[in-house]
Design a protein around this nucleic acid. Structure first.
Lengths: 244, 244
DNA sequence: CGTGGCTATCTTGCATACAAGACAGAAAAG
DNA sequence: CTTTTCTGTCTTGTATGCAAGATAGCCACG
């Protein structure tokens, strides 16, 4: 799973390598992903690198700036809000739909929370970041629904990119507490409460972001010129006079 | 949007064309999508067709059988159940998270339901299929969350493929009623009720499926031999002797 | 000192060429 | 007549080549 010098027989490992690099906060938002570099790194031609990039693009993890390069996405403040909103909707809906916690599920979550505790004590920040995101994926896995797991994995990856951009400080202990409370509610069979706690937890994390600062340093200038927030769709931009 | 003989300046139209073809039930599950045919049809080379296929594959709409070809997915019974489960989770979560129905939203839904009514009267089945799926996408659009819209669009596409495989008869009138009831609850500001109705509605549609018949005609044989349900992941298949 | 333009180089976009597997149909063997 | 094998054809898999845009650095010019 952590194959640094990828072997020659690589198939979709390149995609997974990048995603897991993001999930463990080793790859920062805005990182340039050169087709050539990845090709030599993985011992394949650009063709397959390109395929991986295309897939990552549809997963919302990477984007291409034409003739300039591929970059790990740098979610805007609006993107960040949308990601958290989507996660609240899906995770709360997921917990509400649950009816019981199996023994295997109980064990998996307990083991995970124990790992969180250990990482918290050791202060391994990368591992902590990974575990904090993975908790939510583990919950999705309890549902046995692979579709929701995939969706939440990609959203979690984006969440981590967001936190790398906007999170001033990492309240890991607080997050861990939130996870524990969710687990307790699930243990008690109160999945409605677990859903509420999940929403609160995501709210907390989102509130811990500073969505006014980091990216797009031109935002102030942009605002003062009353230009559109971002170039989302290059087509059908209404005419906008330069000087009123 | 419905460019039959696609122009030379086609970028991601090929992807959208296929998806919209599915959404309007013009493309059946299992349809073979030849790279060469699509390439000549769209006036591009295989390279770009391939890129579109890769993207559609990560969206769960198409799959490739190595050296045999690309095919529109034929969801298994398990897939079907998972898709409906995911839709219930997300759509219910979405409605529960709503706080008010704007005037624009009211108008959009009312107009849509009117279209449904018209199609129901005229008996245009393809149009009806499209509209029945689109209703749920419209609701997602009300949230203003593009992430959820994209997710639900892909799930809706899969739902339509599922209904083409397993739905013996199309209870369009019943679905339309369900949509109307959801709309009424939203108008009343009772989004919890709307979420419940949405779950019931999806349950109804799912119950209308016959998940034992159509696809994988070998399922009976497979069961009687107690073989695994489907070849999902070719790797890490445990050894299985041919003759016990 | 500042500014505009030119070029060298690096990037992706896209098409094409070739390799290799899968399949169908004919031909041969029983 | 049935079965098997072989071969031609069609499919995707992958690499490579070339074109065109973007960028940075340099140089000339004001």
């Amino acid at each position: 799973m952590q194959d640094s010098h990828a072997s020659a027989t690589t198939q979709k490992t390149i995609e997974e390598t990048i995603v897991s690099g993001i999930l463990s906060a080793r790859i920062r938002p805005g990182t340039r992903l050169s087709e050539n570099q990845l090709a030599t790194l993985f011992g394949v031609s650009r063709t397959r690198v390109r395929e991986a990039m295309m897939r990552l693009e549809t997963r919302g993890i990477v984007h291409v700036s034409p003739r300039r390069g591929w970059f790990v996405v740098e979610p805007s403040a609006e993107d960040a809000i949308a990601v958290y909103e989507a996660r609240r909707v899906i995770e709360a809906g997921l917990l509400r739909s649950m009816r019981s916690l199996t023994d295997a599920g109980h064990e998996a979550l307990a083991a995970h929370l124990n790992e969180e505790k250990g990482a918290l004590a050791s202060g391994d920040r990368q591992r902590l970041t990974y575990l904090m995101g993975d908790f939510h994926i583990r919950i999705a896995e309890l549902s046995g629904n692979g579709i929701l797991v995939d969706i939440l994995r990609d959203l979690t990856a984006r969440t981590i990119l967001i936190s790398m951009l906007y999170q001033s400080e990492f309240h890991a202990a607080q997050s861990h507490d939130g996870h524990c409370r969710i687990f307790e509610a699930m243990q008690a069979g109160d999945f409605v409460r677990a859903a509420e706690l999940s929403v609160e937890h995501l709210d907390e994390v989102e509130m811990g972001l500073d969505l006014t600062s980091r990216p797009d340093p031109l935002s102030e200038l942009r605002n003062s010129l009353s230009l559109p927030p971002r170039a989302v769709s290059p087509v059908s931009q209404p005419f906008r006079p330069k000087k009123p």
